[in-house]
């Protein structure tokens, strides 16, 4: 639910978190993006960075150049006209995934947990259009939701220390893709040959907040021959 009034949480002497609501929802997330785009289009002097997340924005500023009271006034002004702020439509991205086997070591476990076949898990995972709620954790790492109810799964009891890059994984009502090898506590269903982060491209990430995502099953051969 949206808060009646924006909630400001100061983080130290040079940043503030602006909270818009109390839960993960597409509407709140969309509003976060509206704020982020509006603030970035007309950045105040001394604004260092804006990091939009599920239901809040982190605004980092140079306290010697930008007064926090002025910053809050600017946000309150935006809040009054936020409904009318036009933002570009998010793009739709199809993510090819080779499911199961060495690429998806947890596919069988997830199928057994839900008492369905691995094929049904794949059908459920590929049968939904998802929304990217935020990018974080590592460069280009998307938080994608919501999984179909029949796939909602608790996190792994023991996190893995090395999840290969490109791994597509699920836990709770979310699905993620690991851009770089990293530790991870989610169940790995498969792997994509796509590169999620390239520091030499602009934008540097395949996915951005609010993008629509669909997963497409591919064969191991296609994965191996995918141009990289």
């Amino acid at each position: 639910m949206f808060y009646q009034k924006l909630l400001y949480r100061s983080m130290g002497d040079r940043s503030v978190i602006v909270e818009l609501g109390d839960q993960i929802s597409p509407e709140i997330n969309r509003r976060v993006r509206q704020f982020a785009i509006a603030l970035m289009e007309d950045p105040a002097e001394g604004l260092v960075e804006i990091i939009p997340t599920y239901r809040s924005l982190l605004i980092i500023y140079d306290p010697l150049k930008l007064n926090v009271v002025r910053l809050k006034n600017r946000i309150e002004d935006l809040q009054k006209q936020i409904e009318g702020i036009q933002i570009p439509e998010p793009k739709t991205v199809e993510i090819p995934v080779v499911y199961g086997g060495e690429y998806g070591p947890d596919l069988e476990w997830v199928a057994r947990y839900h008492k369905i076949s691995p094929e049904e898990v794949i059908q459920l995972h590929t049968g939904t259009t998802y929304q990217v709620y935020m990018i974080g954790f590592t460069p280009g790492h998307p938080y994608i939701a919501e999984l179909p109810k029949a796939l909602i799964t608790p996190r792994r009891e023991t996190p893995r220390t090395n999840v290969p890059h490109g791994s597509v994984a699920i836990a709770k009502n979310q699905t993620v893709i690991y851009p770089v090898e990293s530790p991870g506590g989610l169940h790995i269903l498969g792997r994509t040959p796509l590169k999620l982060f390239d520091p030499f491209q602009s934008p540097p990430t395949l996915l951005e907040m609010a993008d629509w995502v669909r997963f497409l099953p591919i064969e191991e051969e296609e994965f191996k021959q995918w141009p990289r």
Binding site: A36, V48, E49, I50, I51, P52, L58, I60, I135, G136, F137, T138, P139, G140, H141, P179, F197, P199, P203, P204, T205, E208, M209
Partner: peptide
């Protein structure tokens, strides 16, 4: 700076 929204 300026790339936090990409997770950088």
């Amino acid at each position: 700076f300026g790339y936090g929204r990409f997770g950088v």
